[in-house]
Design a protein around this nucleic acid. Structure first.
Lengths: 187, 187
DNA sequence: GCCCGCATGTAACTGGTTACATGATTGT
DNA sequence: ACAATCATGTAACCAGTTACATGCGGGC
């Protein structure tokens, strides 16, 4: 029970899509869930070992020597459904960008502008990555049943990125305005 | 050096606006920075003690017995500027809602709809809280120099909330569509 | 006289990250 | 043969949360 059930959820969920090795699991979580979920390397193997002891996953005889594929067992599938219905535990917010902007008077308008411009560029890059992800999913007909749900998460990412871009533009305009009114009424 | 500089940033930043007690600091961080920053109770006092040892804050003679007001020293102000210019350290993403939707095939369409509806309601409530915050800031003329920066963070919160609402509507429509096509092509 | 809110702290725990250690397979 | 990548794990560390412990002052 030590490990957070959140990690178990991600691991069991990934294995519910297809069996894979711990290594592949790590990559799948990084690449596919990456934009809304993170699982650190050191969590995955202990979690797998734990889940195996509980009979939620089973390691298939090593196809290649040195590697073994993990697959969900029927009780593992039940466990996953159980975890998925648990209440969402909110992560405490920690937005370093907004914290800096909040103290913008001390940080200075110019630095605020740089941070905002950066955030906008990041959001634009994420938008491009979503296009790639879309294409990748479209090219996997075996996951047709899952794909519509995956699209929901991509859509969320897009909406969020667009919001950041719109806010950044508004923010940059506001920063110009702050600078101007500073020149008119210097301290 | 043990404590993360992020906590120091929040504490020094808050004291840069006005001197206050540790208790008031805690409340200020919860109420004002709350929508984009979190500092747990157990961090604030140790951080203050640390900052005092380094000479970045000074505790004013207790106005009332048992309490003491912390104020930023000149070197503390310098330290704050130094911290603010440090690179933003990204927090690993952990969005429990999107994780559940991603595994929506296992969770079920109905549960996905409930989660989405919930998320939308939360966003709408946050919008109302931003209105309150706006009014609060407008009623404090002594912070006129800071207010424009504070507005930037509120605006970010609003943009984000609007994005969640728009996405949720789209998401609910998509879930209806998934349900319909399931009935037409059952497994 | 008692309860509530202000105020200050500490200690234990837990979840998570990083870095380290190791070896097999595959392609060049 | 050698490098890169696949693969599996462990151990130490760190950040952050929770719960606990304590006491003052003011209002009812």
């Amino acid at each position: 029970m030590a490990r957070s059930s959140q990690t178990d959820m991600a691991v069991l969920g990934a294995l519910s899509i297809e069996p894979m090795t711990g290594y592949a699991l790590r990559e799948a979580i990084r690449d596919v869930l990456g934009h809304f979920w993170n699982e650190s390397f050191g969590q995955i193997y202990p979690a797998l070992a734990d889940l195996e002891r509980h009979g939620f996953v089973r390691r298939d005889g090593s196809v290649k020597r040195g590697s073994s594929t993990y697959a969900l067992t029927p009780s593992g599938a039940r466990r996953l459904r159980e975890l998925l219905t648990q209440p969402i535990q909110a992560v405490p917010a920690r937005n370093g960008l907004l914290l800096r902007l909040f103290f913008g008077r001390t940080l200075g308008v110019e630095a605020c502008r740089a941070l905002t411009t950066n955030a906008k560029a990041d959001a634009q890059q994420r938008l491009r990555q979503f296009d790639d992800l879309d294409a990748e999913i479209a090219g996997e007909p075996q996951h047709a049943d899952d794909a519509p749900f995956w699209q929901l998460t991509i859509s969320a990412g897009r909406h969020h990125a667009h919001a950041v871009i719109a806010w950044a533009d508004e923010c940059l305009a506001a920063l110009d305005h702050i600078e101007l009114s500073r020149r008119e009424h210097p301290q």
